[in-house]
């Protein structure tokens, strides 16, 4: 499997316990900074309806969809109950020289 590391933004561009939307080559991702200052990335759209998760609320390790409050663990992609039942895909993330990169396979 080949992965491309793609630069997302400066590490400081994402607040702690927050999320931003990142669009790249026709795909959309959500990139997170956890309360303990780690970075994560998932697909950008909720698996229930096509809603951008980056408009939602991050609480601890949960992202909540802004439309119907579907919840996922953004570290693992796991769906946390109705109305979502399909997990989110996650992507590797690294921080180098103050920038956030995600690996898009």
């Amino acid at each position: 499997m080949s992965s491309n590391w793609v630069e997302v933004c400066a590490a400081d561009d994402i607040d702690e316990e927050d999320v931003i939307r990142f669009d790249h080559q026709g795909r959309t991702f959500a990139v997170y900074r956890s309360p303990d200052d780690e970075y994560f990335a998932t697909d950008g759209l909720c698996t229930h309806e096509q809603i951008h998760l980056a408009d939602g609320l991050v609480m601890d390790d949960i992202i909540e969809c802004p439309k119907h409050n579907g919840r996922f663990n953004y570290k693992t992609g796991q769906a946390k109950g109705a109305p979502v039942c399909v997990n989110l895909r996650t992507y590797p993330v690294k921080v180098e020289a103050g920038s956030v990169f995600i690996a898009i396979s």
Binding site: I51, H52, D55, G56, L57, E64, P66, K67, N69
Partner: peptide, 10 residues
């Protein structure tokens, strides 16, 4: 869109 969603949730 979902401009107000996060603050309404909070």
């Amino acid at each position: 869109g979902n401009a107000v969603a996060r603050d309404i949730r909070l």
